[in-house]
Design a binder for these strands. Structure first.
Length: 547
DNA sequence: TTGCAGTCAATATC
DNA sequence: GATATTGACTGCAA
């Protein structure tokens, strides 16, 4: 009777308790022929002999957990993720986790019931692990990510945003419940999704979760439930804390420093957050214009002049670079989605011969327009303009940049974006995103056309510069969309088995109907160019601009 | 060591 | 109160 019931009405994985999962694991192993004889050891015996005979968990994971639908896929259609070759012992371990592995939310559920209705997620500031998507264990998310076809991250976030706003659901709830991320991260992610091919496996995870969530017909309902429960719990806590008069979060070290006590407790409770003054930011931005990859010496000087910690300056540069980069990703996407316009300027629309020049125009729009030698040098006043002084540290900070001459050894020579003309000075030239260098560029810290006019940040200036220059990421993006499989894991080339999981319309592969041989060829060409550029850049050697 | 990706969490802004 | 911004941190790779 149980079997019949189970076979005809299998519960989704996420709804199953540990015990409830066991039969499915058994079935899966049996289907795989892994459970020929003997009995699957139950909890506490996972290291038993039978488990040791399990040679690969990939299939169980992918088939049994990824989808507990009654349409098991064959091993052939669901080959192991390349990124996670498992040794036998790892398999055992994973199976252990698999068996025990409660859907994260179950873990918090005291009675083994599905979490949603029983436990408000993270009223206590500690984000709970994400809710497993129906039919998928949390463990398998990595597998899913590895197998996932290229997803349209922008489309996904767009839809998620729509659903959330339409249903008045908050980012915090969504993030903590579905993605296992904090509100800030969710906000960031939704506002500035990176293109799929630019994401690491880890970075893809939230998007896969989102996609799966979007595919879940009960997604909104569940979140609503969560919301209700959270509210209830909140009210409850409020009531109890009123009587308790004790806030629920006692200081971890047990000392209350809020009462004007020593501001520097021995345990140093929390570092106060550094907030950079606008002038400091301005100065840093100007410094960035001069040199996106400042040498330690420059950083030192900047720090001194701005009266900041060196680490703050370093962090600022890191953050700024990466954020600007992302800013541009999203803009590229948006630009791309608004009619394939700009096609004439599109690198992929150019011939292979033209490609280098497109590279030359800009290797990466991010800082592309920002490097000292950015194209259209006549456009703005460079340091002078940038330094449109507000006096103070801002101005002072720009100075060291101009003085700086010897690039630090670690600063790799940037591939001359526009032909052999540019190998001259790499001083102040953005590294990752080689700036566009028009014919006019060359001499060191030259007025940066895209240098932000006063108050304009680099991203903005880059935006201005866009249109006359395409970015490397953009190129890559295009290349990638034209070549769905270049950056996607091998599994992406066989998305069919995952189509139902990811709702294929969402997948870039499906989306890209322009995927034709010619495009592929162009994209491949660009790909190779970029590859060479990167290689050359890292070798600090001159490049031959023949593609 | 350096740079990056991803994230947190404090703070600002809406 | 929700969302956006951003300085800092961790882990990883080259």
């Amino acid at each position: 009777g149980s079997v019949s019931d189970m076979l005809s009405r299998p519960k989704p994985w996420s709804k199953l308790t540990q015990k409830g999962r066991e039969p499915f694991i058994r079935m899966q192993l049996w289907l795989n022929g892994e459970l020929g004889q003997g009995v699957l050891p139950v909890q506490g015996q996972q290291q038993g002999p039978v488990l040791h005979s399990v040679t690969s968990l990939q299939d169980p994971l992918q088939q049994g957990c990824v989808s507990s639908e009654s349409t098991p896929k064959t091993s052939a259609s669901c080959s192991p993720a390349p990124e996670s070759p498992m040794s036998s012992s790892e398999s055992v371990k994973s199976l252990t986790e698999l068996v025990q592995q409660p859907c994260p939310s179950l873990e918090t559920s005291r009675d083994g019931k599905p979490p949603e209705p029983s436990e408000p997620p993270s009223s206590d500031s500690q984000p709970t692990p994400p809710l497993p998507v129906p039919g998928h264990s949390a463990l398998s998310i990595q597998e899913l990510v590895a197998m996932s076809p290229e997803l349209d991250t922008y489309g996904i976030t767009k839809r998620v945003k729509e659903v959330l706003t339409d249903n008045n659901l908050g980012q915090r709830l969504f993030g903590e419940t579905i993605l296992g991320l904090t509100q800030g991260s969710v906000s960031d992610l939704l506002a500035r999704p990176k293109p799929w091919h630019k994401l690491s496996l880890k970075g893809r995870e939230p998007f896969v979760r989102m996609q799966l969530w979007l595919n879940d017909p009960n997604n909104v309902e569940k979140l609503m439930d969560m919301k209700r429960m959270e509210k209830k719990a909140y009210m409850k806590r409020r009531h109890s804390s009123v009587s308790d008069s004790q806030p629920c979060e006692p200081p971890s070290v047990g000392i209350d420093y809020s009462q004007g006590a020593s501001p520097q407790p021995q345990h140093q409770l929390k570092k106060p957050r550094v907030v950079l003054a606008p002038e400091e930011k301005e100065a840093l931005k100007r410094a960035y214009q001069q040199k996106p990859y400042p040498s330690p010496k420059t950083i030192e000087e900047l720090a001194t002049q701005l009266n900041l910690k060196t680490s703050t300056v370093i962090n600022w540069f890191h953050n700024y670079r990466s954020r600007i980069r992302r800013e541009l990703f999203i803009e590229e996407i948006q630009a791309g989605s608004q009619g394939q316009a700009g096609a004439s300027d599109s690198p992929s629309a150019r011939s292979g011969r033209a490609a280098p020049s497109s590279e030359g125009d800009s290797c990466d729009g991010v800082e592309a327009a920002e490097g000292p030698g950015a194209a259209d040098a006549e456009e703005s006043g460079g340091p002078a303009a940038a330094a449109k002084s507000q006096g103070g540290p801002a101005e002072a900070a720009a100075a060291p940049e101009e003085r700086e001459e010897a690039p630090r050894p670690s600063e790799k020579a940037e591939p001359p974006p526009s032909g052999p003309a540019a190998p001259d000075d790499d001083e102040g030239r953005p590294r990752v995103p080689p700036p566009p260098e028009g014919p006019a560029d060359g001499p060191g810290p030259v007025p940066n056309p895209a240098a932000p006019a006063a108050g304009e940040d680099a991203a903005t200036s880059v935006r201005r510069a866009r249109g006359r220059a395409r970015s490397m990421p953009a190129i890559a993006a295009e290349r990638s969309s034209a070549l769905p499989s270049t950056s996607a894991p091998p599994a992406a080339r066989r998305p069919s088995s995952l189509q139902s999981l990811f709702g294929l319309p969402e997948a870039a592969g499906a989306r890209d109907s322009r995927d034709n041989p010619l495009r592929k060829k162009k994209a491949a060409n660009l790909n190779s160019i970029i590859h060479r550029l990167e290689k050359a850049a890292s070798r600090e050697e001159p490049i031959e601009w023949e593609f």
